[in-house]
Amino acid sequence: MSDKPVRGSLIGDGLAQVGALALFLLQVLAALPRSLRHFTETIRQIFFVGAMSLIIIMTCGLFIGLVLGLQLYEVLSRFGSTASVGTVVAIALYRELGPVVTALLFAGRAGTSITAEIGLMRATDQLAAMEMMAVDPLAYVVAPRFLAGIIAMPLLASIFNALAIFGAHLVAVSWLGLDNGTFWSNMTGAVDVWTDVMNGVWKSAVFGGVVTLVATFQGYSTAPTSEGVAYATTRTVVYSSILTLAIDFLMTAFLM
């Protein structure tokens, strides 16, 4: 009996969140041109969200590649087509695994720190101080991180993919004895630059925007307490992961 209004308010809350996020996106987009004046800040943020995520991205990429190499070699050998290990690894990585796994790692590594940082700036009045110095925090704090996410993500995903291919090659060729030429010529025969590699690049640029948008939004609208910042950080990981996967599905189904 009583759970009807609860469910209603849950849906209402969810819609309100989505609406607030969309509104925030519009504000950030409006602030983007102004943020170009602070381009050094964007560069600094590319360093923080991009360069500082390299280690986790590279390690995870390598391991994913090693596992993919092992699994696919085993499975494909049942059909006698181990020659296409490289092809399958590359296509799976370029189209899905690279962008998605990188985005999830990115949400955990860079998204959380963006939320915590901006949330703390909110809690310690740093955002208000910027406003008082006639500096728009949307243009100075949020937009550069958003841009940095969009720029850094495709690069991170590419690095992830390169290491994963390296890992798969290591397993399939150096370890399991697949012919090196077969590995590469199969791959180069089947993988297309536009439909595979570049599609992944567009995807990961979108994911970079999604994750940093959620992260900055959560930080920006956090309750100015340590508890509020803690909750906001958790929400960043949850929401940006869900959004990433949902948008991945939509993009794959309708755009690619």
Binding site: I46, F47, G50, A51, L54, Y94, S158, I165, W184, V193
Partner: peptide, 24 residues
């Protein structure tokens, strides 16, 4: 700035490698 530069070079190298060496 140097770190960002290195990161971008590394990223584009990876992308360039993937795009030209592992595809048709």
């Amino acid at each position: 700035q140097i770190g960002t530069g290195l990161f971008i070079v590394l990223g584009f190298t990876a992308l360039g490698y993937l795009a030209t060496q592992t595809t048709s």
